[in-house]
Design a protein around this nucleic acid. Structure first.
Lengths: 253, 253
DNA sequence: TTTGCTTGATGACTTAGATCAATTATTGAG
DNA sequence: CTCAATAATTGATCTAAGTCATCAAGCAAA
């Protein structure tokens, strides 16, 4: 029940947010055992909201917790030797941030709020301990990490092999699928990141992102109004990306 | 003792190969408890060697095991919708392949031998079970997966932000560090992959890889003789890549 | 040894996307 | 609401790296 409100803490009833949480697969299968749900629920801290631009954690900081986004959006990035920022991911509600810090006990990236954002903090040592007692919890953790590896590798394919059109289309469809999975519209949503951030993430210049999106609109693939996006011709977009089939692209957590 | 010979199975003495294995951190801390080492050792299967070009597992196949490379080299790749191969990684002795299959119980990639290669097969269900009984084993598994996430993200930075020179230099230094870590020369080694495979992995055309390496040689950075590589001017190469500092680049498992 | 067959190197040319520059929208602080 | 600051669009040019083409060097089969 990572994403429930505190006043539900000791209730076995799940809030609607919980049901869409990436941790739900982690919580729900064991929801029957109220005491387990409560044990998990009790290690989770709800933090005060982050304002736009605030850091959740920064590159090099000691790792203690992973975080589930409750509302809002985060980006993760690292600062390269040449001082530029390289965005490595965007995190929507119900997604988990910080797993890369487990290895050497320090976060290798920073996480920053793109808008007002609330998160659940899950102290990793507690989670790990609890996972010893609840095998299905441990298995879900392995699965989550495996999924992340899978997704990152799809991103490598995108960066290494795709052209600008395919990159932008993949990006939009990926967001679409993530929204849909959580019960929001798959065809109409708001981008919480700037064009510059999209370009940075996709390995493209801002201008290229802008041009591609304008062209997509001209060709009737999407409808752009600032940060509001509608996918008008979903099949054509999917054709552009190259249909489904690849790993967990579509199932991006 | 993932990488020991079978005749050492019931001995608590670790072979030298074991000591350099990525699983050693996973084995050695518990080496004191002979019975634990034996328990781990007993679930591991040594497979017959793979010949060059043979598949260890293929994209879509049911996931059952992760594999530790004992000798030789593997590449992992997936076939994109357009039918091209995209290489996602190279695996040297002591490195672990297959973690991306945990998520949906099927490997999302294929793994192929670049030369005669032997691996230890570690049935994941057994490993997971054992990890319930040995907390340090579980922790090491989390760390290994976290490390992989970290490394893949560095690869994303490489693909998204670096130019051809930086890509090739990063690649060579990464190999160098991995060899060094295992007690081999950091400055002189043999590439088991073709120029084409390097290019595919780095998001470059074969010709570009070839030209960059030739230029590096002209500038006295490296010495190339077919697949044999010597890094002549390590400091200059490191400067080219942009020094250390980033995540686990240098600590690539 | 000869005949492919594959891999790598190198030159000539092309191009996708970057960079530079100038406008035009948005945003948000006071 | 107003105005500076920031973000997005659009056009003109430039360039890093891709593509195409050729040749040389290994290597394997016969």
């Amino acid at each position: 029940m990572a994403i429930s409100n505190s006043n539900n803490r000791f209730s076995s009833k799940l809030t609607s947010q919980c049901q869409n949480c990436s941790l739900s697969a982690l919580c729900l299968p064991i929801a029957l055992a109220d005491e387990d749900v409560n044990r998990l629920d009790q290690i989770i801290e709800r933090k005060r909201p982050l304002k736009k631009g605030e850091l959740l954690f920064h590159q090099g900081e000691e790792f203690n917790s992973v975080f589930a986004v409750r509302t809002g959006t985060l980006k993760t990035f690292n600062i390269t030797n040449s001082g530029e920022e390289q965005i490595t991911g965007f995190y929507c509600p119900s997604e988990l941030v910080g797993l890369s810090g487990i290895d050497d006990n320090h976060y290798p990236i920073s996480a920053k709020a793109l808008e007002t954002t609330t998160v659940c903090e899950i102290p990793f040592s507690h989670l790990e301990q609890l996972s010893s007692q609840i095998p299905s919890l441990k298995h879900q953790l392995f699965r989550l990490m495996s999924r992340k590896i899978c997704d990152d590798q799809q991103m490598m394919v995108l960066l290494g092999k795709k052209n600008a059109d395919e990159k932008v289309a993949s990006f939009l469809l990926n967001l679409s699928h993530r929204f849909k999975k959580r019960g929001y519209s798959a065809t109409s949503f708001r981008l919480s990141m700037s064009r510059g951030e999209i370009g940075n993430y996709l390995g493209l210049a801002v201008e290229t992102v802008s041009r591609v999106m304008t062209r997509f609109q001209k060709n009737g693939l999407i409808d752009v109004d600032g940060k509001e996006i509608s996918i008008v011709n979903l099949p054509e977009m999917e054709k552009l990306v190259g249909a489904a089939g690849e790993c967990a692209t579509i199932e991006h957590v």
